[in-house]
Design a protein around this nucleic acid. Structure first.
Length: 188
DNA sequence: CTGTTGATCTGCT
DNA sequence: GCAGATCAACAGT
């Protein structure tokens, strides 16, 4: 399985969000491989996007969105949930990230079942906080390099997705900038 | 320092 | 359909 190069992430956040669909998110925990096909993403940008964490400028929490592209931005929310983003933006753009919202489980389904305490495949990683729990992703993975096989979290090639298979819609669970159709998903 | 809100999910009604 | 979990940012005292 080929890794995705850093140049892939050095393009417009919205375009990267679309093209991440069908790619494989891989977690390596002491040699145990847990992976899934990315089935849903959302783009979050900067000053043109009031719903983005980076809208109000850089903070201790969101600084990864301003850092090198191709790295992971993990944040904690609602007191108990982690969510995973891939940092991606055009070279001339200050900040941006793609929220990974759902996975279709591939490898390590036993591990995910243990993490999630369910054997229902369709309920293992069908939400941003569920997927983080299923892959045991926490603040420790903040800033991980998604383009290196030596990382504990990285992205590689997956299945081919046709543009016509991608469905765009409004992003989930936000109250600002609802006019932007930056939620993208595929059905397998 | 205090109160409110949020890119969420679960469990119960 | 709604409460509960209870962290980080931010605006206001």
């Amino acid at each position: 399985m080929n890794l995705i190069k850093r140049s892939f992430y050095a393009r417009d956040t919205v375009q990267v969000a679309q093209e991440l669909l069908g790619k494989t998110l891989v977690r390596n925990i002491d040699g145990i491989i847990i992976s899934g096909i990315i089935a849903e993403t959302e783009a979050y940008r900067y000053k043109d996007d009031a719903a983005s964490h980076s809208f109000g400028g850089m903070t201790e929490r969101n600084k990864a969105m301003f850092d090198q592209v191709g790295r992971a931005y993990v944040y904690f929310t609602y007191g108990m949930h982690y969510c995973v983003n891939a940092v991606a933006r055009s070279p001339d753009y200050p900040a941006g990230a793609v929220l990974i919202r759902s996975l279709f489980p591939q490898h390590g389904i036993d591990f995910m079942s243990r993490q999630r305490k369910t054997r229902d495949i369709s309920n293992l990683a069908n939400g941003p906080a569920k997927l983080a729990q299923a892959l045991d992703i926490t603040k420790k993975e903040y800033g991980e390099d998604l383009t290196a096989r030596s990382s504990s979290l990285y992205v590689s090639e997956g299945v081919k997705v046709k543009r016509s298979e991608i469905k765009a819609g409004p992003r989930v669970g936000i109250k600002k900038a609802n006019d932007k159709l930056w939620n993208f998903k595929i059905s397998l």
